[in-house]
């Protein structure tokens, strides 16, 4: 464990991060709230508790690749909360001249490890990075975030093959399994079937968790560090739009910004949930 936050503190942090993520998307007038909210808990656990990530330039820092690059608003909010750039900049998301591009651009802002946005490419990058880290006997661990819809891209399965073939036990991918994609339910659009069995059959250590249970998130990420001889995939069962009633489990909130009124309601609900 790299840091020592309590589960309650991590949950509070995740709520604040959700709120600022939604504020930035609202200010932008476009963006991807649904997947940002579904991945917020486990990525908060990763960035603030499990990953070795003190500065964005430390050569020994853990590398975190956001293969599902469209949830850049969550990435930027996490990086701002890490102190890698000013939080005030979050409202420049998607604006002309901003460092906060609609989809991640390498080093823009500091902490964005590389450019992603065209789905299916990040896991291969993570494989190469983990390969190099192991070759160098480096302590660097490599993490990747994939979406479930993204797994429809064939390149993902090439990378799953490669990660297992090279026995990259310094590599862990998190699958944000929120069950929805733009055109509807993943199961209806192009069913992934028994995802855990498939990934396991590809030679990965698979951990299935409730991706909104902070303790389970921390435990799974920590377990990934202990696995030997194979990479780990954490299938985080999540709810798209988690924490905001009108967004939850709605494909329509994949890539739509809330209005000011909707934002106000969302913030009230997130604060209320916090108070419970």
């Amino acid at each position: 464990m790299e840091h020592d936050y309590s589960i309650a503190e991590l949950k509070h942090l995740a709520t604040e991060i959700r709120k600022d993520t939604l504020r930035s998307i609202t200010a932008a007038g476009s963006g991807h709230p649904g997947g940002s909210l579904s991945a917020a808990d486990i990525m908060t656990a990763l960035y603030f508790q499990v990953a070795n990530l003190k500065t964005p330039t430390d050569p020994d820092r853990d590398r975190i690749f956001w293969s599902k690059g469209h949830i850049a608003p969550l990435l930027y909010t996490l990086l701002a909360y890490k102190g890698f750039f000013p939080r005030e900049e979050l409202i420049t998301l998607r604006k002309f001249g901003s460092r906060l591009q609609g989809h991640p651009k390498k080093d823009s802002p500091p902490g964005v490890e590389t450019s992603t946005g065209s789905l299916g490419q990040g896991l291969s990058v993570a494989v190469g990075c983990a390969y190099a880290a192991r070759y160098d006997h480096s302590p660097v661990r490599v993490w990747c975030l994939n979406g479930d819809g993204e797994l429809q891209e064939g390149q993902i399965w090439e990378a799953l093959m490669a990660g297992a073939h090279f026995k990259l036990d310094n590599l862990c991918t998190i699958i944000d399994n929120n069950g929805l994609q733009i055109d509807g339910k993943v199961a209806d659009v192009m069913d992934l079937g028994d995802l855990a069995a498939k990934v396991r059959a590809f030679g990965w250590h698979v951990i299935e968790i409730d991706g909104h249970d902070m303790q389970q998130c921390v435990n799974a990420l920590e377990e990934a560090k202990t696995v030997k001889g194979q990479p780990t995939a954490i299938i985080a069962h999540t709810i798209k739009g988690k924490g905001v009633s009108f967004m939850e489990d709605q494909a329509g909130w994949h890539g739509k910004a809330p209005s000011q009124d909707e934002l106000a309601q969302a913030l009230r609900e997130l604060d209320g949930e916090e108070g419970e």
Binding site: R63, V125, G128, A130, A132, D136, S138, V140, A162
Partner: peptide, 27 residues
Amino acid sequence: ERFIDCGIAEQDMVGIAAGLSLMGKVP
């Protein structure tokens, strides 16, 4: 030890090379 056969998977090969380069290698 510095040769990687990626199999018949060119897209993955490009990604792996990208990852190597991010760690200071010249792939």
